[in-house]
């Protein structure tokens, strides 16, 4: 516990750790302001083809829709913001020379890696929590509450306001798990590097590459896609369907947890054998 507390205090003492919070606030504010000003026009455009079949009463442009749209940014910049901190956890200390201080103290190297991973997971949770506050709180402040019109490609879904809070809460939990997977990957790369640029770039490259593989409809890629963690990072979206497909959610959670276990095992093995030279 001491080691975890120390790692957390280090993470939250660094100015770099707050870049993510600022970026989330800025992007959230831009999206929510844009939606509150021009949202009606945007929704009309989207619902153009349905206007002869569907009559929508009430306020579609509301805080729930705002929060849902802001949550979409989870797959855009959140992995980068997470990697920015997790990728620096070991390589940054190697570059600054403080890894020597840590590695010559009684705690084992395994304990060091594990505590750093837990700190990275807590940081991911804090980022996602902040995203939730910005999305939900900001949306509610600017546009008030209301039912959620889910903008899906295959159907029109409207979820009642009273049925939303638990979906958002669970979505944030699943998003934290997804970002923790990215953190674990970044930490693994961080063990192998002597400065933080390499692990951050490598992590984002893997996320982009796997996302491309998951998106392309080649038969080979389609066979690989289910085992890639990026395929399961958007599992939180499943929560915004009226009936939940528990099996899909459980599989995604298992794949993400499996990836975390593998990445951390590799990081621990490599760090235990690493020669600390800098």
């Amino acid at each position: 516990m001491t080691l975890i507390r120390i790692e957390l205090s280090k993470v939250f003492s660094r100015p770099r750790s707050y870049i993510g919070f600022v970026v989330i606030a800025v992007i959230g504010a831009i999206l929510l302001t844009g939606l509150s000003i021009d949202g009606q026009q945007y929704i009309q455009l989207l619902l153009q083809q349905l206007e002869h079949y569907v009559v929508i009463r009430g306020k579609i442009i509301n805080g729930s829709l705002g929060a849902w749209i802001v949550l979409q940014t989870l797959i855009v910049h959140m992995p980068l913001l997470t990697a920015l901190v997790a990728g620096d956890l070991i390589s940054g200390e190697a570059a600054s020379g403080t890894l020597r201080l840590l590695a010559t103290r009684p705690p084992s190297r395994r304990a060091i890696v594990h505590s750093k991973f837990i700190a990275a997971a807590c940081y991911s949770a804090a980022l996602v929590g902040w995203l939730g506050i910005v999305a939900w709180g900001g949306g509610w402040l600017l546009m008030g509450s209301g039912d959620l019109l889910v903008l899906s490609t295959d159907r029109l879904i409207i979820l009642p306001a009273h049925d939303l809070w638990w979906r958002f809460a669970l979505a944030l939990v699943l998003a934290t798990l997804a970002l923790t997977t990215v953190s674990a990957l970044a930490l693994w790369f961080s063990v192998m590097a002597e400065n933080s640029v390499g692990p951050i770039v490598a992590t984002i490259s893997v996320v982009v590459l796997f996302t491309i593989i998951g998106t392309m409809e080649f038969p080979l890629f389609q066979r690989i896609s289910p085992v890639l963690f990026t395929t399961h990072m958007a599992v939180w979206r499943e929560l915004f369907y009226p009936e939940l497909e528990f099996k899909r959610i459980v599989i995604s959670v298992a794949v993400l947890l499996g990836h975390i276990a593998v990445f951390i095992a590799l990081a621990t093995y490599l760090f235990s054998r690493k020669d600390i030279l800098t």
Binding site: K10, S13, R14, P15, S96, G97, T98, R100, L101, T104
Partner: peptide, 15 residues
Amino acid sequence: RIGCLIERPDFYGYL
């Protein structure tokens, strides 16, 4: 049981 200072005295500069 060991105290050491190996190579440069590097610390967390932001603390």
